[in-house]
Amino acid sequence: MKTIFVKSGIWKNKGLVLLEFAYDEELKELVKTLSGAVWNGKRKAWILPYQETILEQLLALFKSKAWLDYSEFKKIQPEQLPAELPELSKGLNQEIRKFAEWMQNRRYAESTIKTYSQSLSLFFRFMNNKNPEEISSEDLENFHQNYILRRKYSVAFQSQVISAVKLYFSNKLKRKLEPMEIERPKKPRLLPHVLSKEEVKAILQAPKNIKHRTMLSLIYACGLRRGELLGLKLIDVDSKRGLLRINQGKGAKDRMVPISGKTVEMLREYYLVEKPKEYLFEGMTKGQKYSPNSLQEVLKAAVHKARIKKPVTLHWLRHSYATHLLESGTDLRYIQELLGHNSSKTTEIYTHVSQNSLQRIRSPFDDL
């Protein structure tokens, strides 16, 4: 099967996607059906305008026609696209640094601190470096209408920018911005992606490297998030009690999850080979955490080797863990505890993708 190399990048302030593959008449005709597709002779690649759903479109278009290698494809966030806005002033840059320190002192997640800092920077640049003391609710409304909505940014991006600006003004300047025309957009309900047990088994058995195989297996075996896996230390494994301690998971919560005898034996075999020093999974340097990006690459290689034509992410293994537990009869309340969800409503979404629940429904078509 032909291979198409999918890459993304930014050129002249626009997000672009490059498709590179050996000449094939059938693939060429398929590419030409994509909106905005242009051949670039110098790059010897087809160029497409970047869209949030472009990867899903490509996977559907080339299904059974070609294998997509998207190891160099990176999602482009709206804040990464250079906007025609002035540079941030030194004074406001310093103000954002202080805001970031304030969030660090209150134990906000590093990802939240980064996202909120970028969002606030974008807002101040749109305001042409206006003094924060002079910014009003009308200014935020103007930013919302003439920047976010006009550029058709996602609901998630819209919500995070508004949250960042309101947090800064309410907690740093002790002043609330209450824009009248802005309503928080409804977050779309997205169903979790779930793999079959056969697909999971193929992915977990694909890596020859024992560390790679153990990392992916433990994510599925315990329903871990990526950061939770990489934060595990040797002392967190209680093999005698058959428990794994998750420290400071999402929401700064600790929790315990059970590990089976099979999982304990897998971890023992891994330890004898790798002999980690502090963290359960370490990188090239002993005592240092394994890289998040490297772990993602491990998964991509495993999915490729397993010949699974889906854009599988590490979180799909966690979703599959929860769904398979539900299908085996585990009470939803226990699944909520195992996953570390605050609300049962978050866990209930797995009932919408449970094979057992859906297959019990009989279509009226069958009675015709």
Rank of each mutant, 00 (worst) to 15 (best):
M1D: 15
K7G: 02
S8C: 09
N13G: 00
G15F: 05
L16I: 14
A22H: 12
D24G: 03
K32A: 14
S35I: 07
R43Y: 04
W46V: 12
T53C: 04
L55S: 08
L55N: 09
L58T: 13
A60I: 12
K63G: 02
S64R: 11
W67C: 10
D69C: 02
E72K: 06
K74Y: 08
K75L: 10
Q80V: 01
P86L: 08
S89R: 07
G91D: 15
Q94K: 11
Q94P: 00
F99E: 10
A100G: 13
W102V: 06
M103W: 11
M103K: 01
S117L: 01
Q118D: 02
S119N: 11
F123G: 11
F124C: 10
R125W: 11
F126P: 11
M127L: 15
N129G: 06
E134P: 00
E134Y: 01
E134N: 08
S137C: 02
E138F: 01
D139L: 04
N146S: 06
L149M: 14
K152S: 12
K152L: 01
V155L: 03
F157E: 12
F157Y: 14
S159M: 11
S159C: 04
Q160L: 07
K166I: 13
L167K: 07
K172R: 14
K172N: 08
K176N: 14
K176T: 14
E178Q: 07
K186T: 08
P188Y: 02
L191G: 01
S196A: 12
S196Q: 09
K197W: 05
E198W: 00
A202S: 13
N209Q: 10
K211D: 08
S217H: 03
S217M: 10
I219W: 06
G223D: 10
R226Y: 00
E228I: 04
L232V: 04
L232N: 01
L232D: 04
D236K: 07
V237D: 13
S239N: 05
S239E: 15
L244C: 05
I246Y: 01
I246S: 08
G249A: 07
D254M: 08
V257K: 05
P258Y: 02
I259D: 05
V264G: 08
Y271A: 12
L272M: 11
K275D: 06
Y279L: 03
M284C: 03
Y290M: 15
P292M: 08
S294W: 08
L295K: 06
Q296N: 14
V298W: 03
A301I: 03
H304D: 13
A306L: 09
A306M: 11
K309S: 15
K309P: 00
V312P: 00
T313V: 13
H315Q: 13
H315E: 12
L317D: 07
H319A: 04
L325C: 00
E327P: 00
E327F: 00
E327R: 01
L332F: 04
I335T: 12
G340A: 10
N342V: 06
N342Y: 01
T346S: 14
T347M: 09
I349Q: 10
S354W: 07
S357N: 12
S357V: 08
Q359S: 13
Q359T: 14
S363H: 06
F365Y: 13
F365Q: 10
D366A: 14
L368C: 02
